[in-house]
Structure formats: C-alpha cells, structure tokens
Write a protein that binds this DNA or RNA. Structure first.
Ligand SMILES: [Mn+2]
Ligand SMILES: [Mn+2]
Ligand SMILES: [Zn+2]
Ligand SMILES: [Zn+2]
Lengths: 137, 137
DNA sequence: ATTAAAAATGCACTTTCGTTGCATTTGATA
DNA sequence: TATCAAATGCAACGAAAGTGCATTTTTAAT
C-alpha cells in the first residue's frame, strides 16, 4: 500500500481510485482549486462524485474550504498537523483580481481579534484581495 | 425637501419614492440585510428594482456589500464619512451561527496585514463567525 | 470462492441567488 | 405641454450548490 493510500486511511477515508487521483491533483496544485477545476481535469468523472469527494475530504480534515469572496468555493490541502482551529491553524487567504487565483498564505496566521462583550468567536475568515506576486511584476 | 432626499442627492442618487423607502428601511435596521429581507418588507416592489437600488446605493457610497460567508450578499449603510477604503474604513463583520444575523462592528477596524514581498492589497474582508451578544445570554 | 451488506459513484433533477434584456412608466427639463 | 432620460416591472437566463435514487464497486462475513 502506497503513501497516499495510507494517508487517506489514517484520515478515515477509504482510498478509492478516484479519491487518490483527486488527492494527487490537489497536492500538485500550489493554488486553491474550485470544483470546476477538478471537473475539467477529470472529464470522465461525474461532478457529483467530485463534489462529494471534496466534502468527504473536508469533513475528515484533509482539505479546508476557502471562501475568497468570488462566490465560488475553493479548496486546498490542509497543513501537516492542521486541525483548522481558530487561534492556531487559521491563515490568511489571498485572491488575485488579475489572474483570479487564490492562494493560502499559511505562514500568515490570522491575528487574534478582540470582540465586544458577549460575542464568542468560533471561526474567522480573512481574505485579502489585490495583485499577487506573479501578476505584480 | 426632507433630510433623506437631500442626502441621496448629495450622493448623486435621484431620490425616488422607492429609494427613500429602502433607505429608511436600511437606516432603521441594526443588522445587515439581504435582498430577500427587503423583498419581504416591500412585497409590492419588484425584486429587480430592489436589487438595482442596492447596486446604485453601493456604487454611490451609500451602502457597502458584505460577504459574510453564507453565500448570500448582505448590505448595510456606510458610516458618515466612509469611503470604503482599505486601512481607513474597512471594519470587521460578525455573523452569528445561531440567529443567522450579520452585524457591522464599525468600531473594530481591520488591522494592517503584512503580506509577502510582491503582493499588493486592494481590499480586505474579515468575518468572524460565532455567537452574537444577543444569543450568548 | 460466494454471498450479503455497506459504501461509493453516476445520472437526473431541483433550488437558490444573482443577473440581464426589454417594454413600460415615471419624473425632470425645456 | 412635449421630450428625453432614468427608473421600474416583467420575464427570462445562468451559475453553482445540493439532493434522491438507481447502479456499481468494495469490504467483510460465511
Ligand atoms: Mn488555506
Ligand atoms: Mn459593515
Ligand atoms: Zn495574480
Ligand atoms: Zn445571534
């Protein structure tokens, strides 16, 4: 059994052929991907399967969903020891208005936010929109 | 000519009956509103008119659109001397997962974000999700 | 190996929200 | 009062997310 299969099983996800392919696809991309991107990459597979694969990955801590403000959900692999927890794992996302790509800035954790009395934070989303490094040259 | 009409004209928006009503509705609400909310409040008006009114208000700096992560656009009146500019006007938004309401925390400006070399910020969206003050009692 | 159960996949469809084209109405201006 | 531009209303469309159910594949037990 290879490494990816082992990884998926550790995450309690059955390593089907499709899931392994999608995992490899995500691992190879350095930007966040939309369902459509995966759909285009695997024309043979049904959209629903890809959709549910992403949901399964998300529920089991393999990917995190990214709301970059475009209205289209993006997904990216989680870091090695990520639990998607506020104050620890959550990082900034950057969406380039030129190339339309969204990237995880995993080194840039979201700062602690002070809230008014009575408010309880459970999740934070911080997205910066602008021109990315590739497009600003 | 009353105060609201004057205000709209200052913003280069012709103060029609519908627009005045929608402005009053927004001014009276202390939470961000969705198109559907306005639709329900003004059953007689067409959804398209309400939609375009919000767009007009947004283009002329009367309201700002809020992406709270629910996938449904919300709108709220801008502050007195707001230009919706990064580093000055942009504030934190809070979405309550219990009552599903979204509020502007206008006193909580978005902190300056350090980006990697080459990245240029043009806009920032910071949304905290959790339990609001009303729901946490 | 054979079979039964569970899980994954594929297909068709629905829903929701945002958006647009165009005809009609309203309102400002001359 | 006539004219023109802007606002409104109606009827669609389109993208994306999501669901129900039949079929296939995989796992596990016999
Ligand atoms: Mn990320
Ligand atoms: Mn706001
Ligand atoms: Zn770019
Ligand atoms: Zn609440």
């Amino acid at each position: 059994m290879n490494e990816i299969e082992k990884f998926l099983e550790d995450k309690k996800v059955r390593p089907t052929a499709m899931r392994i392919l999608i995992y490899k696809f995500l691992a190879q991309k350095e930007v966040a991907v939309a369902l459509t991107d995966i759909e285009n990459a695997f024309a043979k597979a049904d959209r629903t399967t890809l959709y549910r694969t992403l949901k399964t990955f998300e529920e089991n801590g393999i990917v995190h969903q990214i709301d970059d403000g475009t209205g289209i959900s993006k997904y990216a692999l989680c870091e090695k020891d990520c639990n998607c927890e506020i104050e620890q794992d959550l990082h900034l996302h950057f969406h380039c208005s030129n190339c339309n790509e969204t990237v995880c800035l995993t080194e840039h954790k979201i700062p602690h936010i002070n809230l008014p009395e009575g408010y309880v934070a459970e999740d934070v989303n911080l997205v910066v929109k602008g021109i990315c490094e590739k497009c600003s040259n």
